[in-house]
Design a binder for these strands. Sequence first.
DNA 1: AAGGGTCTTTACGCATTCTTTATGCCCTGG
DNA 2: CCAGGGCATAAAGAATGCGTAAAGACCCTT
Lengths: 230, 230
Amino acid sequence: MSQIATLLVIDDEPQIRKFLRISLSSQGYKVVEAATGAEGLAQAALARPDLVVLDLGLPDMDGQQVLRELREWSAVPVLVLSVRASEVQKVEALDSGANDYVTKPFGIQEFLARVRALLRQAPQAAATDVAPSFGPLTVDLAFRKVTLDGVEVALTRKEYALLAQLATYPGRVITQQQLLKDIWGPTHVDDSHYLRIVVAHVRQKLGDDPTAPRFIITEPGVGYRLVAPE
Amino acid sequence: MSQIATLLVIDDEPQIRKFLRISLSSQGYKVVEAATGAEGLAQAALARPDLVVLDLGLPDMDGQQVLRELREWSAVPVLVLSVRASEVQKVEALDSGANDYVTKPFGIQEFLARVRALLRQAPQAAATDVAPSFGPLTVDLAFRKVTLDGVEVALTRKEYALLAQLATYPGRVITQQQLLKDIWGPTHVDDSHYLRIVVAHVRQKLGDDPTAPRFIITEPGVGYRLVAPE
DNA sequence: AAGGGTCTTTACGCATTCTTTATGCCCTGG
DNA sequence: CCAGGGCATAAAGAATGCGTAAAGACCCTT
């Protein structure tokens, strides 16, 4: 929420991209660009933007098609741009999953206001993310709540930060450097010592045994990972 | 979502209301109407609509004002109608919390498509209770009233703002930065001190004990949260 | 102009958390 | 077999954050 929002602009016209890039950057947004529909879809998967600005008049594929393919796996808010003002097209785009529709030419102030409006309601979509569960263990990232066998587990800041980091990518190994950078900051990437202590604390609170782990698995020399959820 | 959606139309012109009522009813929506801003706010609290259609040109009060008052306690999507196409007004409305802005005259198909888009992206926004209760404690966000065991509790502005913020997302942790930004403004996000004092006051008035909390739970180093409602 | 209520500022005791320091274990490779 | 690096755990001292109280500043009403 307080994080800087990332926006993806999909438009084939360089001057429009430039115009939008400058306008949006000046507002503090991070801007990612794509010139074609295919590239746009790839960037949407890669950069995980908080909002997509999509021009319907793309050279390689129909804008509607981009929208439908995007909606198959993402709920990110989409603001559609188009020169054509045909009502039928607006209806089609909105029903294909667009969240707003702006006709070119448009006022930049109105455009920015609509971006703000879409971003404002977006965190609710992100907050509905499901809480991953690992057998008796659940890590609710939205509510910042960890439960074991239905009982809430009290974790300190660092302990929760560690577990949340691991739970964000279940089953995947997170390197020590990654964990140290995210929890202690980039100045402590060499203090792998800290990490072991916090891991020990979390394990203790979860009743986990390092030699026969139920939850946190040590990858020697690399990092840690959480067992994959069911 | 599969439930029939209820829409609230706030407009002083009977012919527009009739036009919208017929159009929306034919789509299967339930339609509630209000002719004035005051009536609209009352209906919003009473009927708990899933979407509000608001005309800015109301006789009794400024549309912007209606919007702001509504936003104090409700996150329901709002679609604003207006004859004026001034960009400044659009920006104002969108920044006051409107989710979309349509200029009259408009095509009914586009209007209905925008209604569908808004209902689609915010299915849970309207589901939040305006008067959640936490055992003996109730926080009525619409009437700005807090009662404990049926007795009204007198809270100061900041005290109420804090409790309202917490009650908007029951059971969820609200970070100190979030609370400070919303209550004191973005310039005081570091004065976590203020927060403790107001929390202490609210707890005192609610007869709450920090070490064995009935209502407000401290998440050390992070923020506060209200116990989940029953 | 006085008064009450609200907000801000300042101060301090206390608990928890974080950091530091120390020690023993296990596995691996020479 | 032994040496060494990485891992786990324990227990201190240091630092930070929380809760409470109280006094002064501010604001609004009367």
